[in-house]
């Protein structure tokens, strides 16, 4: 048998003047993390293949005419990267503005800090008599487990990836339509219970804006009782089959209100099945 062990080689790139060494194949984003440079991301997640569509993580790469997405661009030896130039700041600000001008970002908690940091003003596009086009659709409540609120959807593709070949391989949803009219949809927009959906909740687990929510969370939000600051998160192991999936139980007022899984665990990579995700009611005698 031949030895197939891959020796990990390192590459060194320069970010904002500072040399950073990362393993070959790492992305510029990973190098930024290594260098302690905070970079906004939206469509990137550690347990998904980068789709580099949101463009909020762009950086300036010496020799490249356009900015490059740091989340997917592999670091190559000798690269010189700038993360805080006027061009970078402008593009990031505009991306955030564009998103905020078209959809409801009120629950996109991770973005609020960046919107402020880059001075994005999503309200400057419309004028009196010329309102801008926005995505405005009624919330889809079609079952007792999830809701879908596409007026909050930024089309980051994460749910499609989690439903598809990055985890679940169910492909109940896909991007349909084109351009600004593109939406995440089942075939012919049939309801989720009529679709291929198997309710693993992995789409909800990766949604960054609250467009997809567990019904438990949605119901609490509707009555103003969703209080993340009062919640505890406890890591334990699923009670069903023998695979050993790690669960993070989000508990508020001594009740489980949400179940997630750590993205960095080798067993789940953050993904669960319907039983692990939703089969906890019996803990509360239900």
């Amino acid at each position: 048998m031949t030895d197939t062990t891959i020796t990990e080689t390192a590459v060194t790139i320069t970010i904002d003047g500072q040399p950073v060494e990362v393993a070959e194949g790492s992305t510029i984003h990973a190098a930024c993390v290594e260098a302690g440079i905070d970079t906004p991301t939206l469509c990137w997640a550690e347990n998904l293949t980068p789709v580099n569509v949101c463009r909020v993580c762009v950086v300036e790469l010496e020799g490249s005419r356009a900015l490059v997405p740091s989340c997917s661009r592999p670091a190559e030896e000798g690269m010189v990267v700038q993360t805080d130039t006027p061009r970078v700041r402008h593009s990031r600000r505009m991306v955030l503005e564009f998103l905020g001008s078209g959809v409801d970002l009120s629950q996109a908690d991770d973005l609020h800090h960046w919107i402020k940091a880059y001075g994005a003003d999503p309200d400057r596009y419309g004028t009196d008599g010329h309102p801008v086009e926005r995505v405005e659709e009624p919330v889809k409540v079609q079952d007792e487990l999830y809701i879908r609120d596409y007026s909050k959807c930024v089309l980051c593709y994460k749910c499609v990836e989690a439903c598809g070949d990055d985890a679940q391989h169910t492909f109940a949803i896909a991007v349909a339509g084109r351009g600004f009219d593109a939406r995440i949809s089942t075939e012919f927009d049939v309801t989720l219970p009529d679709s291929a959906c198997v309710y693993c909740g992995n789409c909800v687990g990766v949604c960054p804006t609250g467009a997809l929510q567990f019904k438990t969370e949605y119901d609490l939000r509707e009555v103003g009782e969703w209080r993340p600051d009062d919640q505890t998160v406890t890591r334990t192991v699923c009670s069903y089959c023998g695979v050993g999936c790690n669960l993070d139980l989000h508990v508020q007022d001594e009740r489980i209100v949400k179940v997630t899984s750590p993205a960095d665990h080798s067993v789940t990579s953050g993904h669960l099945c319907i039983k692990g995700r939703f089969g906890w009611q019996y803990v509360h005698g239900e």
Binding site: V237, G242, V243, N246, V267
Partner: peptide
Amino acid sequence: AWAESEGTVTSSERRVQRVRPAV
């Protein structure tokens, strides 16, 4: 056991993991 108690469980791949009380 998995949501109200301390302890360990072992999965199919012989992985011993902690369970913890959340409620």
